[in-house]
């Protein structure tokens, strides 16, 4: 008996986690997938009823807004955070004496809750008392800045706050990448008289392709999961102008009592994540096994 216990200890230790993952991750996904194919409303029902919930999603102007917002927000957030992160990393890579302190300043927003970030920017962007009032106070009486309450512009405030929060992290990723490039190659290029910007654009940046991919995956993942930031900054409003699939799902699940819609919108989110993350994870795991 003790012998058996000894031999199987690794499996015994792993078993609870294995069961937990199978139930709470994969079992739950299966549950949500199934319920998304039923007519569940206030209570979950389990009789299969084709794709009615997905048809309702397709017909819902609110969900359409949420998907369009995800596309706008996701694209702008990823592109701006990457460009800004790369720029900051290159600037910081020039043998700056106070690099440690500056890095700390650029990266600290990443330690904050999205709710804190949203609360802070909501106040800064406040149309009556925030930036607008401040600039007016400087003598520009006609200055107007009310993106937060403008249905067409509010989504860009979410981009702004999200970039503020995450670009420092991208900088840290890129900085580590810049530092890992072979110094000898860079020195050789400098000895040959190649200007610094060419060294970056032709040698260093192309060799960082895997880091671009990593940064993209992390940012895309953050964008799809963005929920707290929208709740704190705009509450999804004005109206539902800044709704994302995540806030749509939450509203359906907990305030509208429409479990079928909640489940199907969650599955759509899942699908978006799948298409981005699965190829990445697959290649990661494969190269690791080699």
């Amino acid at each position: 008996m003790t012998r058996w216990l000894q031999d199987n200890m690794p499996k015994i230790v792993l078993a609870p986690s294995f069961i937990a993952v199978m139930v709470f991750v994969y079992g739950f996904i299966a549950w949500t997938a199934w319920v998304s194919l039923t007519r569940s409303r206030l209570m979950p029902r389990y009789e299969f009823d084709s794709f009615i919930q997905y048809e309702r999603l397709a017909d819902s102007p609110r969900f359409e807004t949420a998907m369009v917002n995800l596309a706008i927000f996701g694209t702008l957030f990823i592109v701006i955070a990457m460009v800004l992160g790369l720029l900051l990393a290159i600037l910081l890579d020039q043998k700056i004496r106070t690099e440690g302190a500056i890095r700390t300043i650029y990266l600290y927003p990443m330690a904050l809750s999205m709710i804190v970030t949203g609360t802070a920017w909501k106040w800064i962007l406040n149309p009556e008392l925030g930036i607008e009032a401040t600039v007016k106070g400087w003598g520009f009486a006609n200055f107007e800045f009310n993106w937060l309450v403008d249905p067409d512009m509010a989504i860009y405030t979410v981009v702004l706050a999200a970039v503020w929060q995450s670009s420092g992290f991208v900088m840290a990723l890129f900085l580590a990448g810049l530092r890992s490039v072979d110094e000898e190659i860079i020195k050789a290029a400098q000895v040959d008289g190649i200007p610094t910007w060419r060294v970056y654009s032709a040698i260093i940046i192309p060799s960082m392709a895997p880091i671009f991919l990593s940064a993209f995956i992390v940012l895309a993942h953050l964008a799809i999961k963005a929920f707290d930031l929208v709740i704190a900054l705009t509450g999804g409003g004005p109206g539902y102008a800044t709704d994302l699939p995540a806030t749509y799902m939450y509203a359906m699940a907990f305030s509208r009592g429409d479990i079928g819609q909640a489940a199907s919108s969650a599955m759509v989110m899942m699908l978006v994540v799948f298409t981005i993350v699965v190829p990445y994870l697959y290649s990661e795991l494969r190269t690791k096994d080699d």
């Binding site: 999961k225 989110m269 899942m270």
Partner: peptide, 8 residues
């Protein structure tokens, strides 16, 4: 996974 998918 987006946690929305396990919320319910």
């Amino acid at each position: 996974i987006p946690f929305q998918v396990v919320l319910l």
